[in-house]
Each structure stands twice: as C-alpha cells, then as structure tokens.
C-alpha cells in the first residue's frame, strides 16, 4: 500500500468558530497511494477537517505536517501549490465567469506581449474544452459559457474534471457524486481508484457507506468534531460500519446491546 512516512499527518487538531468547537483534538495520518473514506453524520466535522487540509481554515491548535514538513501558513493557494487539489461541496465555481475562466482561476496561464502578461485564452479554452468533453458534458456547452447556465450535475462535472486535470499529489473529494447520475457516479469512482493506483492520496467524503466500504482502503469515522474510528476497510463489515456511525463508536454500540 504505502510507506510508513505519512504524506499528511494531523496531530491534536482543534478548530473553534467563535465558541463552537468544530474539531476536537483530531489526529489522523494519510499516506500516498491510499484511498481514505471519511464518513460520519451531518455536522460531524468531515468537511471542516478537509477545509483545514486544503488551506481554507487555519486550525486553532494542533499541527499539520505535509510531506514531513510542518505547515505554518494556511491558505488555499499554498495547498494548491503543494499539490493538493480539492473538489469542494457548494464552493469552487464562480457563476459569473465562463467555464474556461473558472478552470484556471488562481493559476491563469499567460502569454507575454511586450512583456505584459496577458491571459492565454487559447490554452484556457482548448484545455478546458478537452476536459469537459472527456467528462461528457453536452456538446452544446462551450468553455466560454458562464457557469450560471450549467445544471448542478454539469457544475459538479466541471469541478471533478478540473481537479483531475490538475491532479498532483492529493485529491480531496467532498461528496463528489452529488447531483450525478448513476453512470456518472461510477465513472467518478473508477477515476478515484485509478488516481490512487497512480500513487495519489485520495480522501473521499461521502454519506454513501456501502459505496465507500467497497472503494476505500481505510475508513475514518467522525462524530461531533472527533475522530471516533480509524480502521482498514476490510477489518470491518458493512453492518458494523453502519452501526458505528449510527451509535457513535464501538463502545456505545456494545452498550446498546445490553
């Protein structure tokens, strides 16, 4: 599977939003070439945790190490530069910009004319067109169309296509199959597996327990901002997994059985 040296190491991570304790002393390791399923109920802290990993939130306490180096500044730009691509839920696309402009937002390719860096529209258009075609967007959708005109599924497809195109070392997917048809879901899941096999770390958040049980090497379960379980996927049956999520931890589950 992977080396002992984790690509991302999270140690005693705390995050407060005002007085709300969103992450409570979370410690977890992620390795290159690993597919980790991150599951838990709504409000468990899954999205909050990955938003720290991709630089959107800075932790209140605790440490994050990336590739052995301690992360001291948190900003999405730094995470992206380090090779962490994220498919966010709800955010990631600006409705008022075209697909091509969204595709390259924050990393726009430029062509110098008289030394002035102008946007390289040909590259932006060509590459984003190729990607949206590969990912099966309707033929009448052009890379010049504003995202505002796209359906929920098409938006999700653009985000996935972009993340896969710029894939580097880590791909974080937050509910990637939302808004997608059954066929599209299968395609996305196959892609995630392929990327893992290419040596990427894939962190996959979902509510679909049976799906993640099949896909993931390892499953991390969160509840109320805490990590309550961290196990190899094949060490637990689907039923056990569901029970843990429903009752919050193995010990509680046993209590219920009395």
């Amino acid at each position: 599977m992977s080396s002992n040296h984790p690509l991302i190491r999270v140690t005693n991570l705390d995050l407060y939003f005002g007085v709300f304790h969103a992450l409570k002393s979370v410690s977890v390791d992620f390795h290159a070439g690993e597919f980790v399923g991150l599951v838990g109920d709504n409000g468990a802290g899954k999205t909050t945790l990955i938003r720290v990993l991709c630089g959107i939130y800075a932790p209140s306490n605790g440490e994050v190490h990336f590739d052995g180096k301690r992360v001291t500044n948190f900003h999405p730009k730094l995470a992206i530069d380090q090779g962490i691509e994220t498919i966010q839920q709800a955010v990631g696309l600006c409705d008022n910009l075209s697909i091509a402009r969204n595709f390259y937002l924050g990393r726009e390719p430029v062509k110098r004319i008289l030394g002035i860096p102008f946007l390289d529209f040909n590259k932006m258009r060509d590459k984003s067109t190729r990607v949206i075609r590969t990912f099966g967007l309707r033929d009448n959708v052009s890379a010049d169309d504003e995202v505002e005109q796209l359906s929920g599924g098409e938006r999700q497809t653009v985000k996935i296509g972009r993340a896969v195109e710029f894939k580097n070392r880590v791909l974080i997917m937050d509910e990637p199959t939302n808004h997608l048809s059954v066929r599209e879901r299968e395609h996305v899941n196959e892609l995630a597996i392929q990327l893992k096999e290419q040596g990427l770390l894939v962190i996959y958040i979902t509510h679909d327990i049976s799906q993640v049980h099949k896909l993931a090497d390892r499953i991390v379960i969160m509840e109320n901002g805490e990590k309550i379980e961290d196990t190899q996927a094949d060490a637990m049956s689907l039923e056990e997994l569901e029970a843990v999520i429903r009752h919050g931890g193995r010990t509680v589950e046993k209590d219920h059985m009395h």
């Binding site: 991709c54 959107i56 900003h75 999405p76 730009k77 995470a79 992206i80 530069d81 994220t86 966010q88 709800a90 955010v91 990631g92 696309l93 600006c94 937002l105 924050g106 990393r107």
Partner: peptide, 9 residues
C-alpha cells in the same frame, strides 16, 4: 468563498 478556495488572494 469560491475564489478563496481556488487560491485567489
């Protein structure tokens, strides 16, 4: 939020 998540300062 989207601009920030894409690394825009």
């Amino acid at each position: 939020e989207s601009a920030h998540s894409r690394g825009v300062r």
